[in-house]
Design a protein around this nucleic acid. Structure first.
Lengths: 354, 354
DNA sequence: TTGAAAGCGCTAACAA
DNA sequence: TTGTTAGCGCTTTCAA
């Protein structure tokens, strides 16, 4: 084993095998070795036009040999943008967001972008931090699932001058690109289905006042009630559950109610799972004890849950495409609002009362 | 609404309300406004000692007023490290990894680090890319779940001189810090339990040759067989399934077999879910048709799956703590190998044949 | 306690 | 087609 030191470069010779390793090679090193100027090296490395093919070849080959890894920080600082897209979600642990992130990552990758993810748990403070952090990292754009009505966040976003796309919940009073699912219609259809199965005492588990989804779903439910002349009963709107554990608690509460709904529309599948677990623990079977409809259509479910499918993957794709079209400047039109359709997936968690 | 332009600063006056907004304020702006030097501002902002409290106050206040957001790229470039930890996993869509990432994020956050995640799907090329990208982003450390035996990856990691921790699968021949679960013992216990329920024809769904987990689990199974004098039958080792869809396919294959095992140990819970779905589709009930034991203990399961719990959250915590102790230089000892225990969670997916 | 100056690695004018 | 130069925003000596 022999080492040769030469500038920043070490050659290691093991038997007949010789390898050139480097201590953090940078473009200055490559420039020195190849004899070209830094700017030429940079141009060659970035596939810019106006570089002699032979020159480019030589530089590329040398870079490869020296195992050159571009310093993205320097690149970003100099070019005033890192090829990065920031994604701000509530909780990557929710398969819904996990799949959405992968969709975004996929599209981003195709366009040469990297993504960074921040979890906020829907806490406005964390959301603001995440946005600021991303601005600090000079991301090219941001896709954000903002929980509430906190206009400060939009303000921060707007000021930053970074393109951004709102995901999932677009408020009418905010000027921004946004992608959403048709929660309203999804909820409407859910109720229609329940009614067609003979249910009238229909409950809804609300995700909390910071959840625009819940608001829209509730609107759908109310309108469906109106349509079918069902009396809207406030006590069947249960606050609040967002996660599985919340759903579990809510299940116990439901069990304890004297006057129970015959069917529940859960805020999402996670909450529905919580309900089911909670019921089954007491030997109560879904849908015999109570019918349940979820939202999302998480694919990991083994339980045959009837649910309103939210096309999270497609939403991620749309969001990424839209954002990148803004970043690249190909899309300078006015703000777009893309609404994807939802679908009621009928399985076996709703009992027919007819 | 009145605007005042003053250097890089805009004052907006709305009625009696005046707000100072900024167009990307940097420390030079703050220096100019406060009258101190850039270096003083930097010191104050970073809470370094040797700054007059009044000076610090003034600088901090001004920074806040001007809505200063530090440029992390410049910071990183200058200080030669971004306070970032890179996490390389196969697929964040797998709740196992999602939870692990959140654990890492939590610990990282406590220490002032941010994390960036890369999904590799276990493809060596992507793994290498991810590592290089992270080096390029000057991460402070890397936590990586490398799939295979690809020594190039370790080599790249080693060369980079960045601290790193291997997650999940530590090979004996690699010198590195690593965190793993006791897969071997977990598998052993699974078989013990199956045997205690009267099973002898026990199958294993292998995750593929690139899966060190599978290898270790298989070893546990084989040794348990040895212990109970059960004949090891190669045809009951089924290659290969890693995801739910794979499990689904495998289920169909199992249904078609003439000589079936009475119990299956699945590569992980996702595969187990796939099996269950596949069976139930044909009206075959678990565990009546076949007993199943999974690995991981995904909490979203509604099905009462007996499974070997892998403490992914704790593993994430340990990995992050260890990595950060390396980064901070507090831990300069020799490489550590932390093995966390697994636990057999008995539910209802195994039928007693006794 | 504060300031001046250099430099991190790169890109982007512009000049040659 | 290539080279020179300046500068991105910050930290980090070192001097005052």
């Amino acid at each position: 084993l022999i080492y040769y030191f030469y500038d920043a470069i070490i050659k290691i010779r093991t038997g007949s095998y010789e390898e050139v390793i480097l201590i953090k090679v940078n473009i200055t090193d490559i420039a020195r070795i190849t004899g070209f100027a830094k700017s030429t090296v940079s141009a060659a490395l970035n596939n810019k036009p106006g570089v002699n093919p032979e020159t480019r070849d030589k530089i590329l080959k040398t870079a490869e040999q020296m195992n050159y890894i571009p310093n993205e920080l320097a690149r970003g600082l100099s070019s005033k943008t890192s090829a990065t897209i920031g994604v701000i979600v509530r909780d990557i642990t929710n398969p819904f967001y996990a799949r959405m992130c992968r969709a975004i990552e996929q599209i981003a990758y195709n366009y040469g972008f990297t993504i960074i993810i921040s979890n906020t748990d829907g806490i406005p403070d964390k959301e603001l931090n995440a946005i600021r952090l991303m601005i600090g990292k000079m991301v090219s754009g941001i896709i954000v699932d903002i929980s509430g009505n906190d206009l400060d966040l939009f303000f921060e976003l707007r000021k930053s001058n970074i393109p951004y796309v709102l995901f999932g919940a677009c408020q009418s009073n905010v000027d921004a690109d946004c992608i959403e699912a048709d929660d309203y219609k999804g909820a409407l259809r859910a109720v229609e289905y329940l009614v067609s199965c003979g249910h009238e005492k229909i409950g809804f588990i609300h995700g909390g006042n910071d959840s625009i989804y819940s608001q829209r779903r509730l609107n759908g439910i109310k309108d469906a009630f109106l349509k079918f002349h069902i009396q809207f009963d406030d006590k069947f709107i249960l606050h609040k559950a967002k996660k599985m554990e919340d759903g579990y608690e809510m299940g116990k509460r439901l069990i304890g109610m004297k006057d129970r709904p015959t069917a529940i529309i859960a805020y999402n599948d996670l909450v529905a799972i919580g309900l089911i677990k909670s019921f089954e623990e007491e030997g109560l079977i879904v849908p015999d004890f109570m019918s349940i409809i979820g939202f999302d259509d998480i694919e990991l479910m083994t339980f045959p849950l009837t649910t309103v499918r939210i096309p999270e993957y497609d939403m991620g794709v749309e969001a990424a495409e839209l954002l990148i079209s803004r970043i690249s400047g190909k899309n300078t039109g006015k703000f777009q609002k893309i609404i994807l359709d939802t679908e009621l997936i009928i399985r076996k968690s709703v009992k027919s009362l007819l």
